[in-house]
Structures are given as structure tokens and as C-alpha cells.
Design a binder for these strands. Structure first.
Lengths: 170, 170
DNA sequence: TGTTGGTAGTTGGTAGTAGCAACTAATAGT
DNA sequence: ACTATTAGTTGCTACTACCAACTACCAACA
């Protein structure tokens, strides 16, 4: 990427910013739509719903955690998280035990079965993504991932991150 | 995901692609989550749900359309689309009339009220996005939008685009 | 010790999302 | 006219997601 700083002093009305924000908003909206759809198709194929899969993924990525932590991780209300976990427990993908340090809290752990299912799904999704970007050149691939991650970072700081209590101000 | 990879059975030319695809997949997943959350918060504030807003947006962007077309545009089953439109009609944001050319088909049109609501919501969302990317430099902003659009384009061609036929114009 | 305030998680209630299948009505093909 | 197809609706089921009310536990302190 060329990194020029030429346009530093923006005019009073930043019409460029507005337009960029609008384009970005539209692009992200569409991405959300099409990816939700893809996820529904790919994941429902297996034994779990999209949200359930995200929950599984989150617990695997971050290790055993409490329910509130999971809810915050998924930007969900704890009641919703509770039900999602309920489904996963019923299906045998997650184990719900008492936290050793705090009898109120849960320790959510993915079972072996859960890990297995998740790797199968993840393999599928990554495979799909591979097909999608196979003929991007390497720089474009990396740049896309980097920019999206950056946007996620910002977005979660701005209007996510902290649903119930937890605050990790960097 | 899998803790160790890049072992003997992975083709050499593939290993970078695999990693990129995995990163991209994760980034997109997170973007989807955080944006769904943002949308729920921002849009529910008004009188419509997220999907209802997308439907409104789609009809505004593409002009009056049939229900099947809308369903395809939103990657939804026609039954779901039918109910979403039902809500919008009930609330007075969309008008459902018979298609002049085909008495089976509907002509879905956004009412003035609908247009008004949509511009208010869109203004909010774009404003939010502006805050998010205001201190990106211009190149980064544009590059992000461009890369995401490109990804959407690909994705919708690959696993979305035409649920019921390619669009043949009006 | 017992009360009180706060936190973790569950459950009830309501509304919306979403797909499949079965249905009606109109259209097109023969 | 008869049939197959297409557009859209409705019944059904399950899940998502919120708020609010609830139980259970923890911590502090009087």
C-alpha cells in the first residue's frame, strides 16, 4: 500500500469521509448478509446453529470461561448465551461445571466431541474462504484480512466489548 | 481452531493460502458478529428490526421489486421474506400491490414514510461508521471499502447471488 | 450472625428470524 | 382445457434475542 499523507488537512466539510463511510457501511452490510447466509447453509448442515457454532469457537479460542464472559464475547445478553449453551450441553458439545473459585459462576468447557465438530466445521469454512480468495494475490489477501481485523477492533471498542460489566480498556 | 497445522500433507504452495483464508475467515466472522450487534442496537431504536431495515434498504436501492427478488437479494427463503414484508406493510413502510404484468406477483414499493425512516437510520449508521474510520487515512478507508466489496462480490457469486435466477433487470 | 447490596446464571414472556412443507392462485405449455 | 410451473402465503418447528424477575452465592459490615 502506498502511504502518502498528502491530504492531511481535510476541508471543513469532509465530503470524502462521508462518501467513504457510506460505501464502507454498504459494503459491510452486504458482507454481513452474505456471510450469515453462507454460515446458515454450511453450519446447519452439521448439528448446530450459527450462534451455537460461534459459541463453540469462542470457548475453544479463549479456553474455558464463564457464561458472562461468553455472552460478552458474542455480544449477547446473558440469557441468550445461557440458552445457547443449554443447546450445546444438551447435544454434548459443551460441559457446564461449577467454577472452583466461585460457586455462582460456571466453567464452560468444550468436550472432545465439541472440539471434533468444530474442527470439521472450521475446515469447511476455511476451505470455502480459500476458494474465494485463491486467486487474490498474496498482498491483497493479507491486506484484506488486516483491514477487516482493524475495523473489527475499532468497532468492538466503540460499540461492543462491554455488554455486562467487563471492560478491557486498552 | 487447530492448534498445529502446516505439516507434511499440506501442499507447499497452499500453506500461505490456508493461513490467509483462516485469518480472513476469523476476521469476517468477528466483523459479522460485531456488526450484527451494532445494527441491533442502532436500528431497534427505531420502529424496525435489522432484517426489516435491510429489506427496506434493498427495495430503495433496487427500486420496486417482487417478493422473490427481495428474498434472493437478502438471501432469505421467500416465506421469511413474505413475513418481513408483512411487518413492514403493517407498519406502513411498504406498499404491496399487484404486479401489472403478472397477477401472481407482487410489486413491493417503499412508501414515503418508509423512505423517511430509512434515511434517518442510514444517516445514523453512516455517522457511526464515520466516527469509526475518521482517523484512517484516505487510502486505508478506500482500500478497506474496495476490498470488502470485492469479497462480497465473490462471495455472492459463489454461494448466494442467485437463489432463484439471475436478475434480468426490472 | 444476620442483613444488605452486588454478581452469576436461569427462566418466563414476547417478538422476530428462518427454513421446510403444504397450500392457493395465476400463468404458460401442449 | 389440462397440466406443470411459478408467486406468494400460512402452518409448523426451532432458534435468536431482548427485558425482567427470580434463585443462589459472595462480600462487606454492623
Amino acid at each position: 500500500m502506498s502511504s502518502k499523507q498528502g491530504k492531511r488537512d481535510a476541508p471543513v466539510k469532509d465530503s470524502g469521509l462521508y462518501k467513504d463511510a457510506r460505501d464502507l457501511n454498504r459494503a459491510v452490510s452486504e458482507l454481513v448478509r452474505v456471510y450469515q447466509f453462507r454460515d446458515r447453509k454450511s453450519i446447519f448442515y452439521y448439528d448446530v446453529s450459527v450462534t451455537q457454532c460461534y459459541a463453540l469457537s469462542s470457548i475453544i479460542t479463549h479456553g474455558p470461561m464463564t457464561l458472562n464472559r461468553l455472552a460478552s464475547e458474542l455480544y449477547l445478553d446473558k440469557s441468550t448465551a445461557s440458552r445457547v449453551v443449554g443447546s450445546l450441553v444438551r447435544k454434548g458439545y459443551v460441559r457446564r461445571s461449577a467454577d472452583p473459585g466461585d460457586a455462582r459462576a460456571l466453567r464452560l468447557e468444550v468436550t472432545g466431541k465439541g472440539t471434533g465438530l468444530h474442527s470439521k466445521i472450521a475446515r469447511d469454512l476455511v476451505e470455502e474462504m480459500k476458494n474465494l480468495v485463491a486467486d487474490y494475490d498474496v498482498d491483497t489477501r493479507r491486506a484484506t484480512a488486516r483491514l477487516i481485523s482493524r475495523l473489527v477492533q475499532r468497532a468492538s471498542e466503540r460499540f461492543g466489548g462491554n455488554i455486562s460489566g467487563e471492560d478491557e480498556g486498552t
